[in-house]
Design a protein around this nucleic acid. Sequence first.
DNA 1: GCTATGACAAGGA
DNA 2: CTCCTTGCCATAG
Length: 126
Amino acid sequence: MSKFTDGVINIVKLVPKGKVVSYGQVAVMVGSPRSALQVGWALHIKGEEGITPWWRVVNKDGYISTKCEEHTKNIQKEHLLKEGVEVGKNLKIDMKKFRWFPKYSTLKNLELDEKYIYLLSEKYKI
DNA sequence: GCTATGACAAGGA
DNA sequence: CTCCTTGCCATAG
C-alpha cells in the first residue's frame, strides 16, 4: 500500500482505451522520475486482471517489453490491437500517434508538483 | 541497514 | 539494428 505503488496503479487506470504510455512517463507522473523499473514491478504485483490496463504501458521506444510468462508480449499485443492501437511486426508502437498525454486538470488531481508537470511537457512534448 | 533484483531510461559505440 | 554502461529506487530476503 505504498504511495508509489498505488500511484502507479491509479495512473495506469487513467490511460484511455486506444492510447499507451511509457514506463518513464508513469514514473514522472507518480513523482519518481527515476523509478521506471518499479512501475513495471508495481503492475506485475498489484495489477489486477481486467481492472488494471497494464498492457497500455510500454517502454520508451514504443516496444512491448514484458518478460512475464503470464503476461506475454503476444497477449499484450492482442489487447492493444483490440483497442485500435497499431502494433508493428516487431512489437513496435508509434508513440507519436498513440502516446497519451494527460490533461492539466488530470495532473492536478494527482497532487503532482508543478515541476513534474513541466518535466513531462519537456520530455514528451505535447 | 545491506545486498540483489528488475515488465526501464538515456546516451554512447 | 544490437549491445553496453550508468543511474535510480521500491521491494524482497
